[in-house]
């Protein structure tokens, strides 16, 4: 589902964020992406989302080579990738419902369809009763779950999460990891960037470890 072939990303300066990174994530696989701060985790996620283009090598998502993707096609790729951020990126000028509905709105879904799918997503994260509230009225954990609902509302085949448990206590983190596990069980490829070692150990899943831009562990065949 997500494949990196000899991917190198160099920024304008001499700074090389990723060096010859190779890995392949299957459909329905849940993997962690870890490494110290500045090791290239964010760069890797940005390459999947086509926020950045690789300097060398190939990034393939859902069978589509992203290198040669024209700029105007980028939105359509992003509709197949749900993203959860550490700081949620929720909009405080609208309700929880409207926040979650955004991916459907950009796709031009009908109001009935939108209503049904938003409520299904909110139900999944246990926030159905708060759809009319402003995200500002919610706790940090609830806000994060609204972000997750938004990321999965249009049933994307790929789910990326950047430090999704960064500000949460262990119990809430476990809840969120449980959600991610459930998504992977229905075929969603989930990649979670985190440096929460305890969490990684507790989950016992495949872990891609980056060090100075090089993939030092977890790059082999999936399942190892």
């Amino acid at each position: 589902m997500i494949e990196f072939r000899q991917v190198t990303k160099r920024y304008d300066s001499d700074h090389t964020a990723l060096r010859h990174v190779n890995f392949h994530l299957d459909r329905g696989e849940l993997a962690f992406l870890t490494g110290h701060s500045g090791a290239g985790k964010s760069t890797l996620l940005k390459l999947v989302m086509v926020m950045e283009r690789p300097t060398a090598g190939e990034v393939i998502v859902g069978g589509q080579k992203l290198n040669s993707l024209p700029r105007r096609q980028i939105p359509y790729i992003r509709r197949h990738i749900g993203v959860v951020f550490q700081n949620h990126q929720l909009l405080f000028d609208r309700t929880v419902f409207d926040n979650v509905a955004m991916p459907l709105e950009v796709m031009g879904a009908s109001p009935e369809d939108t209503g049904r799918r938003v409520r299904a997503a909110l139900d999944k994260v246990g926030l159905l009763s708060k759809e009319k509230m402003n995200p500002m009225q919610l706790s940090g954990g609830e806000q994060q779950r609204v972000g997750i609902a938004r990321a999965v509302v249009n049933k994307p085949p790929v789910l990326l999460a950047d430090e999704p448990t960064g500000n949460l206590d262990p119990e809430l983190s476990a809840d969120i990891m449980h959600l991610f596990t459930q998504f992977s069980q229905v075929g969603v490829t989930v990649l979670v960037a985190t440096h929460d070692i305890a969490l990684i150990h507790a989950m016992n899943r495949r872990t891609l470890t980056l060090n100075q831009g090089e993939l030092v562990a977890g790059g082999g065949v999936s399942g190892h």
Binding site: Y76, I77, R78, R79, M102, P103, V106, M107
Partner: peptide, 16 residues
């Protein structure tokens, strides 16, 4: 700005 960023993130086209 925030709204535009999120719209672009979730796959909003330029026209949208």
């Amino acid at each position: 700005r925030d709204e535009i960023l999120v719209a672009k993130l979730v796959g909003g086209t330029d026209a949208f």
